[in-house]
Nucleic acid binder design. Structure first.
Lengths: 233, 233
DNA sequence: TTCTAATCTTTACATTAGAAAGATGACGAC
DNA sequence: GTCGTCATCTTTCTAATGTAAAGATTAGAA
């Protein structure tokens, strides 16, 4: 399908590595990781079944490369979505949407990204970034007075878990197969994100109230003071 | 390892199906789903490599059976954990812990349970139950006045997502490989669950406040004055 | 006891990952 | 130019897997 008719007779393909990666995405997004075999790729690209091994040591090495690409596109989608929002809460909302929609559109990529193979003990910087982007959004929410103060990673861990869990459940899990739920994907997604963010906002209110209750004698019910949470990071 | 020396010469194994399932769990829990092959099981049980096909139509059928067993044990663990708590919030907390710990102890089983194979379009009643148990816990929280009223599935969806996401991220995801996080598993787990439940409880407070604000326009001298949820500053 | 059907084995085939060694040709040194 | 050199690609081969087909064995019904 690649329309490489012109140079299909060349002994040297020239751009085999890129062609293999491209074909790999087609196979993965269509049929999942199980359908991804070295020989199938070789067939698609029109090359002998051993040729890929000159560009990837083995199948796991190919998966590693694909994982890097997937994470790059994923974090880019997250960052882009964050720019389309003006308020911190909207930004968090949009990022959550992007995360979940990405998982739904590319379920196999999610499995690739978030399932560590035995060989790859390392976690790349790109992967760390996708968590830090979320922490940044939480910090912005805190600065705007829409989330309780304190270590932002506490809130980020919940947000990350919730978004990731929803994404996984709907992308590959049984929920997507439960008829009553499948039809309400977008609604459920937005509702879940709203509940999450609303929880942050209301938790701040609760924290305020508790603080004012304990200190009410001091007679300073003014806006939230920085308190001792000055040292972050 | 099964110590079936006594009847190892028997042409008919007698309990091959059960033995296969038992061996399958050993393989899965030790090396993951990839290591689970029909022939490996046959070897372990001491039977020809085609024997399993008289009890399971193919590998997917075996995986289906294993998935049923896994879900049974999973929901049982969830239900048991809920009984060890007296207050509704503690109960939710304990259930979350059980969910996450199960995923950490048996990561491969989680993948088996929550990743639909193409063949299995159906969702068993057992799987539905594991979600309903959570909804029940949320309803109890509402009845105790510790969560906002309304459709419990709204809160349950967030709770389910958060717990599932955390479980997945730490069981098989990259987070478990990030050194700073790996060491703080239990702390992070409990913190996340507390943040989640605390969010429900404080959201109820916020709902109360909003209700009283809209009904009594006269102004309530409540302690919290800074309604900073508008534009920043 | 004999028959039948379930269970297990043997044999066979297609597909996969990967190793090993040979073929090809692009490109720089002469 | 021609002549190596070396990365790239092909051929060939081995071992493992899933699974189909047909034969062997035996438990239990008739």
């Amino acid at each position: 399908m690649s329309a490489e008719v012109t140079e299909s007779k060349n002994y040297h393909h020239g751009e085999l590595k890129a062609a293999l990666l491209e074909a790999a995405w087609e196979v993965i997004d269509a049929g999942g990781l199980d359908k991804l075999t070295m020989r199938e790729l070789s067939r698609r690209v029109g090359v002998s079944h051993a040729a890929p091994y000159h560009h990837f040591k083995n199948r796991d090495a190919l998966l590693d490369a694909l994982r890097q690409e997937a994470f790059a596109g994923f974090t880019e989608a997250l960052a882009d979505s964050g720019k389309r929002a003006r308020s911190p809460d909207k930004r968090l909302f949009e990022m959550g949407r992007a995360y979940i929609d990405f998982a739904r559109r590319y379920p196999a990529r999610m499995g690739l990204m978030f399932t560590l193979r035995p060989c790859e003990a390392e976690v790349s910087e790109t992967e760390r970034r996708s968590f830090e982007v979320l922490v940044d959004a939480i910090v912005a929410l805190q600065k705007a007075g829409m989330a309780p103060k304190g270590d932002p990673s506490r809130l980020a861990l919940l947000a990350f878990s919730a978004v990731h869990g929803f994404a996984k459940l709907w992308a590959e899990g049984p929920i997507s197969a439960m008829p009553p739920y499948e039809a309400t994907y977008e609604k459920s997604r937005d509702q879940m994100l709203r509940t999450l963010i609303r929880g942050f906002m209301s938790e701040r209110v609760l924290a305020d109230r508790e603080r004012s209750e304990t200190r009410t004698r001091a007679g300073k019910p003014s806006a939230t003071k920085p308190r001792g949470s000055g040292r972050k990071r």
